[in-house]
Structures are given as structure tokens and as C-alpha cells.
Amino acid sequence: MTITAPARPTVFQGLPKVFWLLFSGQLVNRFGGVVLPFLVFYLTGRGYEAGQIAAVVSAYGLGGLGGQPLGGYLADRFGRRLTLIGGLLATATCLILIGAAGSLAWLMAAAVAMGLAGDVYRPAASALVAETTPPHLRPKAFGLMHWAVNVGAAAAGAIAGLLLAHGFWLLVVLDVTTSVAFAVIVYVGIPAGHDRAAPKSARNGYAIAARDRVLIAALIFLLIGLVLYAQASYALPLALAADGLPASLYGLLITVNGAIVVIFQPLFVAWLSRLPRLPVLGVSMAVVGAGLALTGVADRPWHYVATVVLWSIGEIGMAGFEAALIADLTPDGSHGTYQALYGWTTAIARFAGPAVGAVLFQAQALWWACAATGILCALFAFVLMPAVARRSS
């Protein structure tokens, strides 16, 4: 009698119910994520000057620096489910405050609060994914969460322009409704047992993390890769302008990037999730570096499209594996704070990326630096492999 091996689960099989609830909530929530992307248009329409608008946007970014650390602490101290629900309801409240703010001072205060509240739920969601998903499926789970964000954002962009024409309050209502809907999904679908606090010995996850040399090295590795990837958003427009190409081409390139991620990520993630974390991350960052480096020799629209295809493939390889790597290094009870540190690393990269890109671009060294950074990331991943393997064994 011939015994056949069990078939490997497809990309949409094998993941727990809690994951799919979070996936659905994330998809719904991102579909309503329309207020912040269109806030500048709203403020311009109200007669605010460019400097005042920049102050409001900066206030949001300032609040965002504290959202992930606060969310990580709350998730480990009071429970993932409670933090998720509380963070989403607080986000909905802050969205209403932004829509109702009648002066610049109130707008800035509401923006700070929104930046703080808007990221509180993220470490709790990531902690739940890490804790309820088997380790070998974590890259697939986190990759699909990234996919949900892109699908939801694409749908939101398609409808937001139509709603804005009839009033900014329609965007606020949509955003508030989807945030509350995510909270309801969590409240109804995720068992209350996930509100259990972490053991006392693990509640101060940041103190534990500060002494975790492998984690710190992994975060530095991810930070370098994320600053590299940030150049796709911040340096690419500079290159297009330098070549005298229209801003509409940048919109096309972003659409190409989104289409590649939405179409191919579910296929890639099923294959890549079977491979070791660090080699995938190292190679993916090198591919991103190569794609961005080739931007330096592009001077026609189709050249730019080709480079976007290349670094988009690298983006797919990075998505999911970053959070999964941190989850592998996390001691029991500290998933909230460890995932918050990863989220904070992405926030730092968003702030540092433009400054680094601008300096290197002016020095005419950016594209060479992208190639070198991609190679550095691949080498960094190779060096980290023994330490991470010892922790995971």
C-alpha cells in the first residue's frame, strides 16, 4: 500500500480563526482609512496656509511616535483583546475630534491624540497573530496582514475622492464606522481569554528588550532595510523631477507597485513562508536595493516601471518576515512590547528615510548607497543567522 504525504496547506489554509478575524478587521479598517490621506486637501479647502498644514501633519507624526510603545505596554499589561478594542474606539473618537476642530490649536491637539491612539491597537493585533499562529506559519500570517492593508487602502483610495466631493464629514463617518466595526469584530469573535495579563515577570517587556542583544541587533538590521525601502516613497519623486518627468508618472508607478503586491503577494507568501526568515529578508532587501539603485540610470517612463517591478518583488519578501523574525525572538508574555518595538522601528525609518535620502541625493550618492545598503543587509542577515538559530532552537 502506498502512503502519500499530506498536501501542504495553500496560502488561505492552516491559519487559526483568530487570525482570520484580525485579517477581516484589518481589511475593513483600512477600507475606511481615508481621513488622514485627504486631510491636507480638507485643510487647504478651509483656507489654512502650507506652514499651518505642515504643523498639523507634524503633530500627528509626533503622536505616532508614542502610539506603538504605549500599545505594546497596554497589550502586555492588560491584555491584547482589551487593548485592541480600546485603541480602535479611541481612534474613532479622535477622528471625530479632527472633523469637529474649529481652530488650528484644536486641530493640532486632535492630530497629536490621533497619532497616539491610531497606533495603539497595532502591537496588540501583531501579538495575537504571533501567539495564535504556529511559528512556521507566522510569515504567511503577517504577509497576509500586509496584503489586507494594501487591498483595503486601494479600495479606500477609489472611493475617498468621490466622498470628499460631497463633504469631508463623509470621510470621517466612513473612517469612524470601520474603526468601530473592527472593534466589534474583535469583541464578538475573539474569546475574552485573550485579555489575560502577561505574567508579572514578563510585563516589563521594554526592560527585557533593552538587555536582549539579539533583539537589538535584529532591530538595527530591520531599521537599515526599512530606511532603504523608504527611498521608494521619498527619493523616487526626486528622481522623476530631476529627469523632467510629470508627477502623474509617480502616481502610475505607485499604482503598479500596489497592483504587484495585491496580485502576487498571496502566491509568493505561500512559497516564501517555507523558507528560513533571515535569508529571505536578506535577499529581499538586496533586491530592493538593486531596484532602487537602477533608478539612478533610468530616464524614461518604462525604465522606471521596470525598477518598480523589481523593488516591489523585494517588498513582498520583506513583508511578513520582519514581524515573524521579532516574534521568534520574543519571550512568553512580551509579544506586545516586542512587536511595538518593531513598529517603532518602522516609525523611525519613516522619519529618517526622507532626511537620509535628501542628503545622499544632493551629494549624488543615493543610488550607489542603495545598492551598497542592499548588499550590507544581505551580509547582516548572514551574520545574524547563528544567534537567531540558537534562540529559536
Rank of each mutant, 00 (worst) to 15 (best):
V308D: 00
Y121V: 09
G51Y: 03
V309L: 15
M114W: 06
W344L: 12
A286Y: 08
S233D: 03
S284D: 03
A239I: 09
I98N: 10
F38Q: 07
A207S: 11
I263Q: 02
V305T: 04
L107A: 04
A349H: 08
P246R: 10
R81A: 09
A355V: 15
A202N: 00
I263H: 00
I53G: 07
A324D: 06
I313V: 11
R211P: 03
C377T: 06
C377I: 09
A324L: 13
L88G: 02
W20Y: 15
A59C: 10
V56W: 02
L88R: 06
L137Q: 14
V256K: 13
G79P: 09
A54V: 05
T93F: 10
L384Y: 10
R277V: 01
A110S: 09
Y73V: 09
L22C: 04
H136A: 07
R390T: 08
T133F: 09
A197I: 10
L82V: 15
G66P: 03
T373F: 01
A371E: 01
R196K: 12
A347H: 08
G64D: 04
V388Q: 13
L223F: 07
I96H: 13
C377G: 04
A293P: 07
I185W: 05
F31V: 06
A355C: 11
L219K: 13
L163T: 09
V359L: 15
G66V: 05
M385C: 08
L88T: 06
I159R: 05
T178E: 09
G47T: 07
A293V: 08
F321D: 08
W344I: 13
A319Q: 11
G357P: 15
S334R: 10
A207I: 00
F38A: 14
G32M: 05
L128N: 10
S179M: 15
A111C: 01
V149R: 15
W147Q: 12
A160M: 14
G336M: 01
L62I: 14
P16Y: 02
V172N: 04
A160K: 13
G87W: 05
S201C: 02
I208H: 00
I159E: 06
G291N: 13
R274I: 05
L226T: 07
Y42A: 14
L22D: 00
I190N: 04
L267M: 14
R80H: 06
L36I: 07
